[in-house]
Simulated assay, not measured.
Amino acid sequence: MNAQTFGPMSGEPVGPAFYLADEEHHADGGGTMLGFWIYLMSDCLIFAVLFAIYGVLGSNYAGGPSPRDLFELPLVAVNTAMLLLSSITCGFAMLAMEEGRVRRTQGWLAATALFGAAFLAIELHEFSTLIAHGATPQRSAFLSSFFTLVGTHGLHVTVGLVWMATLMAQVGRHGLIQANKRRLMCLSMFWHFLDVIWVGVFTFVYLLGMLR
């Protein structure tokens, strides 16, 4: 039987106690944030597997090009700077949100989106250059694991940009209501998570790859 609360005088049931507590919990956004943390942990596992695969296959060139033959570190460094700058502007957007400044929040989100779009454009340029030189995912296990790892991260950035544009429209229409603040916090966590993953990619794939 469901636990119920009763009126102090009539003794009639008011409603299931745990349902009321659950509604209050979700009204405060606790359920949303917990669910999003669980999602981020699952995403961590996905990237951990991709890093492990690259660690095993990253030196199998099959007589093809190696990282030293393919990677352009100055370009990758610029790409990394774009994503790190987007993390800073995302932080400024969250500060503006806490101050209740709608236009400023939207402005910083737009700057974040521009840096994120620049990151994607450079990454797509890198991919197209590699493919033009015959360094396709089918060429070797190294290239297969490289394209899978970096491409998965790029797909996440794309999803983040779509999410960002949607939230900018919602904030413009409804303002900084509690639901939008909660969504923006989730977006911020997601975006900073992608930055951390990219630092790992830059170090493990590009920097260490040039030392092999």
Rank of each mutant, 00 (worst) to 15 (best):
F6G: 11
M9A: 11
S10L: 05
E12Q: 14
E12T: 10
V14T: 15
V14Y: 06
G15L: 09
P16R: 11
P16S: 08
L20A: 05
L20T: 04
L20M: 12
L20W: 12
E23K: 14
G30D: 00
G31W: 04
T32E: 14
M33Y: 04
L34I: 00
G35L: 02
Y39C: 02
L40P: 00
S42G: 07
I46T: 12
F47D: 12
A48D: 08
V49R: 11
I53E: 10
G55Y: 00
V56L: 07
G58L: 05
G58T: 01
S59C: 13
G64W: 00
P65L: 03
P65W: 02
S66F: 02
P67H: 06
L70G: 03
F71W: 13
L73D: 01
V76L: 15
V78H: 11
L84K: 02
L84C: 03
S87I: 01
I88G: 11
T89V: 09
C90K: 04
C90L: 08
G91R: 14
A93E: 01
A93N: 12
M94N: 07
R103V: 01
G107T: 07
L109K: 01
A111W: 10
A111C: 09
T112W: 01
L114P: 00
L114H: 08
F119V: 09
F119K: 02
I122H: 14
E123M: 07
H125Q: 15
E126I: 11
E126N: 03
S128E: 10
L130Q: 08
L130H: 09
L130N: 12
H133F: 03
G134S: 03
A135C: 15
A135E: 00
Q138E: 14
R139Y: 00
S140W: 06
S144Q: 12
S145I: 09
T148P: 04
T148K: 08
T152M: 15
H153T: 06
V157K: 08
T158R: 13
V159N: 01
G160K: 03
G160V: 02
T166E: 15
M168S: 11
M168G: 13
A169S: 11
R173P: 00
I177W: 07
A179N: 13
N180I: 06
R182I: 04
C186S: 10
C186Q: 06
L187H: 08
F190C: 04
F193E: 05
F202V: 02
F204N: 14
V205T: 01
Y206T: 03
L211A: 14
